[in-house]
Design a binder for these strands. Structure first.
Lengths: 211, 211, 211, 211
DNA sequence: CATGAATGAGGGTTCATTCAT
DNA sequence: TATGAATGAACCCTCATTCAT
């Protein structure tokens, strides 16, 4: 498209890069479509044909980019965890307490637009996570590290109690954050998505760590 | 069976009983196998064939007891929720705070021997729970009611702070309880089943409600 | 039943005949039930379990009387053809023309209370007649012989035209009779069961053979 | 494919055509195989596997073309009725009586090469035709209309008796025609396919309507 | 690269048949 | 005899995967 001078020959010199771009765009579209399907219907419900349809490509092209369905799903999971962690990272200007609250709320917001993540965080059997190796494994480690770092920073800053069992508290905080992030997109009377509940959870966290 | 108390009448009550007993035992084995599979692999992964294999019966026998796979799963869910709630009910001698802690620990213990429950508690709509009516719907309501009742009792007894948002706090407590119950059976480095973490969660809860 | 003096011992001397009777009654009930099911639902739809249920006996007893489902169905077919032919036989006082008309109407009436027969007469593939040997084969021969005999009698009596191709005309008459007998039990707008149509068919027959 | 007339354009109209053609041929083979099976074995006996086997395709391909077995059978029925009616339509030069006879013979001939039609014409509700909507319903209406039209034409032309009960006579004629068409393909001693019988049937019809 | 027609293993389910009681 | 629990082959259908084009 930026090659207005390119000759009309089919095997033009600029064509390879053009093709590459086009190809990469398709690859991404497939990953996005897979993420959507997986979030809406689970592993078994996310059929290869439906994913290809949503991505606007053919059934077979999918196997050009990914070894098989399993590998595709694994990449989808890796990608979403990466995006999620990136979205949560504390702002430099936030105090430790603000960072805890900010992360919590940003995580909830992120999940609202990425229905797959909650299911992943819950480790839903429907996702058949046991099928994939590393992708399933690493999904919460970075999150917990992030929270632990904030706690340590808060303790060092005298903002949080110094006798905290950092590892354990970090775990509990992560858990709560995953839970309420996981509820953010639901329409389920049993699991209400009520701002007051989120406030209560945050208040409980802050009161437990504050000096 | 050849017990000395058995009456000699030809159409004795014990004669058909043998068959019935055997049959009932198989019915229960099927339910148990289904519970296992469902917890490990989700709805789609829990195939009728695998369930039958684990129960040690034929594929077809399953349909003698249950209308279809869906009905079988629904019965599994109803049964486990019933058992779980029964196991959690507070002891009469427990104070409100003790009741909160006791429920938490009993729920965790229960899940250790019932791997399905955590999966159910996560209650993902994609787990196909929407297919079943009441079983899916009521799965956490009783739990939340139980916790709310304890909180109210604690407030009235002056044991807990009087300004608690009972409904919201109850929700958070239930959530944590489900979470850590859900971890109890896992072999997952990402979700460690560490007594110290459970202690931390309980401490956080108690500190948040205590006056 | 005629042994009012029979002792109450279980293995009484009269018991064998009693048992026989009882047994024979069950056998007949099975045949009747099978006839019903077959007429209503075809071969595949007439399940062994349903037949046993209607006959008020157990699933397994059926195999005491009949080798398998196929043999049972074969006997059902034989029996109904026998009954049908018996019902059609002309009355001694009828003239040849009256006999033709009488047979036609009696056949229609018979089918009204025996929905299976029409399906059989049509040779419906759904009945899977190819599975049974003689039963399927002989189903219309006696009928045609009956009609041919009447035609011959009519010709000899000077009642019918003497140049009739008896075999062919007999075939056509039998065919029409089967057809309209076959319609007698239907609720099908495409195949109306209208007395005027039956009158028209009979009129056509009579006008074709009468001198 | 290397045909001399093929244009050199890469996305030529003939290139995809090949695949399409092949595919369409398979679609037709499936329909033909289904027609055969249905005629020979009825609805339940015509298994998807057997149809696919005869068509020389895989089990699953069938579902690329047809929603399910029911839809496939429905299309088979629609197609064959359409073809049959088209084959029967009277020639313009035929007199009314000739038209009646011509239709009769053409119908018989048609059935000789289409064994399914007779089974359909018998139209047994137990054949599961009730499952399909229009295809089952309209299967004889057009035929009867055709015959009635010829009768009316014959009456108006003074060729047939003026006191005919057109509707009833048309019904009887159609019935006979279906019957003997239905015999045309059989190898069944009970239902002989004898030219003399067909002549007798036609003679009976003509003598009944002629003035 | 890209297509989508084609495959076939495996899913849930039904039902004729057997056999311990 | 009579039962009905139990079996397993066979049904219809879905979908991940391949391959000729």
């Amino acid at each position: 498209m930026s090659a207005d001078a390119s000759p009309p020959t089919p095997e033009s010199t600029t064509a390879p890069s053009r093709r590459r771009e086009e190809s990469e765009r398709k690859r991404r579209r497939i990953l996005e479509a897979a993420q959507e399907c997986l979030g809406e219907r689970g592993y078994a419900g996310a059929t290869v044909t439906e994913i290809a349809r949503r991505a606007g490509v053919s059934n077979g092209l999918l196997y050009q980019f990914f070894t098989n369905k399993e590998a595709l799903i694994a990449q989808v999971l890796e990608a979403i965890v990466r995006d999620w962690v990136r979205a949560m990272v504390p702002r430099p200007e936030e105090s430790a307490a603000e960072a805890l609250e900010g992360m919590f709320r940003r995580s909830v917001d992120f999940c609202r637009s990425h229905p797959l993540l909650p299911a992943l965080l819950r480790g839903d059997p429907e996702l058949q996570l046991t099928r994939m190796g590393a992708a399933g494994r690493d999904r919460v480690g970075p999150h917990r590290d992030l929270v632990a770092a904030i706690l340590t920073r808060g303790i060092e800053a005298g903002e949080f109690r110094s006798d905290l069992d950092v590892a354990s508290i970090a775990d509990v905080i992560c858990q709560l954050q995953s839970d309420y992030s996981g509820r953010a997109y639901r329409n389920d009377a049993d699991f209400p998505d009520d701002p007051r509940i989120i406030d209560a959870a945050i208040a409980m966290i802050v009161s437990a760590v504050r000096d």
